[in-house]
């Protein structure tokens, strides 16, 4: 059974629809990447999954439950965490405090999970007390992912995690995404660095103008000449 099953998702911010009947499924432990031109509705779709965009028609089913238009705080409680593209950390707070905020709704002991995250991102373990606002873009991205992982989500939504990063950090971020996935977390990711993202993806989708254009395995998409020319920058 699919972990996430979105059917004919239609909606937007209140004006004209940005999402015009999108379909997407994600199995447990899968990495799925959405690529496509600007304005295709990739990020908006992700926000719709997280309840930040109004879905006018269609349905989003997560783990057997309809979560269409649920409030973000309820969706978080069900085990989906979302890392926005921008402003995804608390800059004046320390690394440790950022992670604690990720665990805000947890009632049980979250310290073991924090240790796991420090193992996953050793750089953060060295800088527990440092304000995140003083850290580099790549390190911030680790904090952002770490915060989201504090809830031990079953599904992680990543909106362009490599945007604005230097090539060195881009590679590192993708390796980390893969490592997070290895912990048993399903990952839905929107990416501009489409080729690299598809290289670590189980499956990929191409969205354009709010509609599905193409879907295949990550490898299959990279091998497809037409897709490569149109959407992956040649």
């Amino acid at each position: 059974m699919a972990l996430l099953d979105a059917t004919d998702v239609t909606g937007g911010y209140g004006g004209a629809d940005i999402l015009c009947g999108l379909n997407l499924t994600l199995s447990r432990d899968e990495v799925v990447v959405i690529v496509g031109p600007n304005g295709a509705g990739k990020s908006t779709f992700m926000k719709a999954v997280f309840g930040l965009v109004n879905v006018r028609a269609g349905s989003i089913v997560y783990d057997g439950r309809d979560i269409t238009n649920n409030k973000p705080e309820d969706i978080v409680a069900r085990g989906i965490c979302y890392v926005p593209q921008e402003r995804n950390v608390f800059p004046s707070m320390s690394v440790q405090e950022n992670l604690e905020m990720g665990a805000f709704i947890r009632k049980d002991d979250w310290r073991p999970q924090m240790e796991k995250i420090y193992e996953l991102f050793p750089r953060l373990a060295e800088r527990k007390k440092q304000p995140v606002g003083q850290m580099s873009g790549g390190e911030r991205q680790m904090v952002a992912m770490g915060r989201a992982l504090m809830l031990e989500p079953k599904l992680l939504l990543l909106d362009e995690p490599t945007a604005g990063l230097s090539p060195k950090f881009i590679d590192e971020t993708f390796r980390q995404v893969k490592r997070v996935n290895a912990l048993g977390v399903g990952i839905l990711m929107v990416e501009q660095n489409a080729k690299q993202a598809l290289a670590i993806a189980d499956r990929g989708y191409v969205f354009s103008s709010g509609q599905n254009r193409f879907e295949d395995t990550g490898r299959g998409m990279l091998a497809n000449k037409e897709i490569a020319e149109m959407f992956l920058g040649g």
Binding site: F50, P72, M101, I105
Partner: peptide, 13 residues
């Protein structure tokens, strides 16, 4: 956290 980044605070629950 709310004062730092209201949207992210909401997203964190």
């Amino acid at each position: 956290a709310m004062s730092d980044n209201m949207d992210l605070a909401r997203i964190s629950g």
